[in-house]
Amino acid sequence: MRIRYVFKGTKEELKLNPNVGTFSWFLHRITGLLLLFYLFTHMWVLGSANKGAEAFNQRLSAVQTPLFHFLEIGLILVIFYHMVNGLSITLMDFANISSKHKSLVVAVVLVFAVLAIVSLSVMLPRIFAPHVPTGGLA
């Protein structure tokens, strides 16, 4: 019930305060939840190494599909947004520059864009290249 209450309110808050701060707070929360979800998936794949090389290779190949490669693009963007926004908040607090909120937002967008473009320019060609099995540990 409590979670439903908070989620219902978040929608209302976005409607009543259509400010850049509300949206970045909302995105920060959503990306945080997505990262938590990714963390468990990540451990599920890596954890299979305890059961030997065979099991690990099998589970790793399960996530080497076009769908997961596509999701990896989202993962990179989610990580960068959460990281850059979090760092900007930390910087804002430590350096006490809350009066320069607008410049901070511009800096966050720019840094995010640079990181996204650089990483996508590396990732996209690899995703569309034919898949070459590396053989793994075995």
Binding site: N17, N19, V20, G21, T22, S24, W25, I89, M92, D93, N96, S98, S99, H101
Partner: peptide, 17 residues
């Protein structure tokens, strides 16, 4: 650190800061 309080303050104060 959502900055809404700073934006809406009618006295232009800075609660976030």
């Amino acid at each position: 650190t959502i900055f809404n309080c700073q934006l809406v303050c009618p006295k232009d104060l800075n609660p976030t800061g």
